[in-house]
Computed example of a mutant assay.
Amino acid sequence: MTVDEAHRAPGLLHRAFSVLLVDGDGRLLLQQRAAVKTRFALRWANACCGHPAPGETVTSAAARRLVEELGVSAVPLREVGVYVYQASDPSSGRVEHEYDHVLVGNVSDISDSFSSGAVDPEEVAALEWVAVEDLEARLSHSPDLYAPWLAGVVSVWRGSTA
């Protein structure tokens, strides 16, 4: 089925991925989702998310989306776990019900990975590097500013590094 069909209420469980990019200081790259997104527009989320195409591996799909959304290439990704969740977007009525593969890429020199001006404005409104402790505090104080999967994705990553 299409991504659109999978996200109509009540939402059907399907594969997805979330990518965390971590810099040399241990900060995470967050993106503010573009205003035109059909689910959780203008909320802050991890570096990128998406769905693998039929027959496409999760890692290949994630690498493709990093280039398409952020202009980021040549970042090795490793899967650190899975986060299963369901969340309804009160603004659009769409539903996320995902078996979300969490992938992490370490980016020591971000200038080597970003293509200048390659961020897709149809996907991304803004970018910000944030320390994990600051993000966790923000998530607890203002959860409605963030995508509902972000805390779970970060938790899976943190658990994999313990």
Rank of each mutant, 00 (worst) to 15 (best):
E79S: 15
S73W: 01
A41K: 02
V75W: 00
L28R: 01
Q31A: 12
E79W: 11
S92D: 11
L30V: 06
Y83S: 12
P52E: 03
A63W: 00
Q32A: 06
V75S: 00
V95A: 06
V80C: 12
L28Q: 04
V82Q: 10
S73R: 07
E68T: 07
D89F: 08
R64Q: 10
W44M: 08
D89G: 07
C49P: 05
D89W: 00
W44L: 09
Y83Q: 14
C48Q: 05
V67N: 01
Q86V: 08
G26T: 09
G55N: 02
E96D: 11
T57F: 05
E56C: 03
A61Y: 00
V75E: 00
C48D: 00
T38P: 07
C48K: 03
H97C: 01
T59D: 14
D89Y: 05
S60D: 15
A74P: 07
P90E: 13
G71P: 04
C49K: 14
V36T: 15
G93W: 12
L70F: 06
S92Q: 15
V36A: 14
L30W: 11
A63N: 03
E79H: 09
D89R: 04
A62M: 03
G71V: 07
V72L: 06
V67K: 02
T59K: 13
R94L: 06
L42E: 15
G81Y: 12
C48P: 03
G24N: 05
S91E: 15
G81I: 06
V67R: 09
E96L: 09
L70S: 03
V95N: 10
L70K: 04
V82D: 04
L66E: 03
A87T: 09
A45W: 04
A63G: 11
A63Q: 09
V58T: 14
L66R: 00
V95L: 08
C49H: 11
H97F: 03
S92P: 05
G93M: 10
R78P: 10
H51W: 12
E69N: 11
A87V: 08
R43I: 03
T57S: 15
P90R: 14
S60L: 13
A62S: 00
A62L: 02
K37D: 05
R43N: 00
G50C: 04
E79R: 15
Q32D: 07
V36E: 12
R78F: 10
W44G: 01
S91W: 07
T38R: 13
E79F: 11
Q86G: 00
L66S: 01
Y85I: 07
A74I: 01
G81F: 11
F40W: 14
G24Y: 04
G55V: 01
L28A: 00
E96W: 11
T59M: 07
R39W: 15
R33E: 06
R39M: 13
F40K: 10
P54F: 07
C48W: 02
A35K: 04
P54R: 14
L77W: 00
L70D: 01
P76I: 03
G24D: 15
G50R: 02
A41F: 04
P76M: 01
Y85K: 08
G81L: 01
